[in-house]
Amino acid sequence: MEIARHWRQRAARYRLEGQRHRASGAVRFPPQPLALGEEPGTWEPVVLSGRGELYSFSVLRQPPAGYESLGVYAVGLVRLEEGPLVSAQLTDCAEQDLAIGMPVEMVTRRLADTGEDGVLVYGYKFRPRL
């Protein structure tokens, strides 16, 4: 079930909320805890545009436990406009449509179904930009 675990991720999963370094302007995603030497004000939340391009991708035919119902599915690394490189599933596209460098955008979809008494986990995926 792990309801609280998924709830903690809500800002990143639903809004693609990352962090911007107040001094340097560097943006990172997903949000990380403070590292040694950083203060609570070192990073501020920033909602990312969800637009980027495909850095690489793979189409999986041997899913891990919990993802069998997806059958064959595509995953990708997306370079967001703001800089971060994000791992996610690719959706609304056929394998032959995919190419490195293609523009993609974030959509919210179901990530996992944790079973009868569990939670439906929603979050970001990416699709070819409309």
């Binding site: 793979s58 041997q62 891990p64 997806l70 599915y73 599933q89």
Partner: peptide, 29 residues
């Protein structure tokens, strides 16, 4: 499927594994 999921524990659970990424998929990318 259980072995793939166990191997995927080596990845980042929130940033990668929750998206159905396996270790094999990471090397593939």
């Amino acid at each position: 499927a259980a072995v793939e999921a166990a191997l995927a524990l080596a990845a980042d659970a929130e940033a990668e594994a929750i998206h159905g990424l396996t270790l094999t998929a990471q090397w593939a990318m």
